[in-house]
């Protein structure tokens, strides 16, 4: 007899049901977390449409290959899902780089430029923050997103990104330095230069 999923089930129980093919459990999980992970994906990509694609791809991955969830490793579902998002984002950037290098006629579009839907809605300060985040290298932006915005501990963020704790701390430090320099140069309207510490 098939076990029915309930909205009261925790994420890990739902993943167990998804492994046994429960689309209902998958629906509950998606409805529960889409907004949260969309926020994280937006902060990583800087584009609402790309964030939607990223979240969709990540959820479809766990639906199609539920065996990638290893319960015995004891990770929380949300922490584990960040890893899927981060990896999907890396794949997306690789594909884009390949597409650009395969076709030199394609104009290079900054991977984290805010989409047109955001451009109209953003005020000047928001635009500055988005620009500051956009000029950060992808790994630094991901580190800031996970630790600052998503509230992961440094150890969890390091695990999610697949780097050592020291490396993560270094990424965070460089990101903050880059952001501070960007702020100091761009808050003065006479100096419109953008740069970040790579």
């Amino acid at each position: 007899m098939a076990v029915l999923a309930s909205v009261d089930d925790n994420d890990e129980s739902l993943m167990r049901l998804i492994r046994s093919g429960s689309h209902q459990a998958f629906s509950i999980l998606v409805r529960r977390h889409t907004d949260k992970f969309f926020g994280a994906a937006f902060r990583m990509t800087g584009s609402a449409s790309e964030a939607e694609d990223l979240v969709q791809d990540a959820f479809l991955k766990i639906w199609q290959k539920p065996d990638i969830w290893k319960e015995d490793k004891g990770a929380k579902f949300t922490t584990w899902f960040y890893r899927i998002l981060v990896n999907q984002n890396i794949d997306r950037l690789r594909k884009r780089q390949k597409m650009v290098s395969d076709n030199s006629m394609l104009p290079y579009v900054a991977d984290s430029a805010a989409g047109p839907e955001m451009e109209t809605a953003m005020n000047e300060e928001q635009r500055r923050i988005e620009n500051a985040m956009a000029v950060l290298p992808e790994r630094q932006r991901t580190a800031i997103t996970l630790c600052f915005y998503e509230g992961l501990s440094n150890a969890e963020a390091a695990d999610t990104m697949g780097v050592k704790l020291k490396a993560l701390e270094s990424l965070l430090m460089r990101a903050k330095t880059g952001l501070r320099e960007y702020m100091n140069h761009n808050m003065n309207p006479l100096q419109g230069e953008r740069y970040a510490t790579r």
Binding site: V30, R31, T34, D35, F38, G39, F42, R43, A48, A51, E52, V55, Q56, F59, L60, E117, M118, A121, E125, Q126, I129, E130, M133, I144, F148, Y149, L179
Partner: peptide, 17 residues
Amino acid sequence: LNKRMTPKARPDLAERI
């Protein structure tokens, strides 16, 4: 950084997934 706003996902995103 705390002033950074995040747009809301489209309401039908979850259903589309």
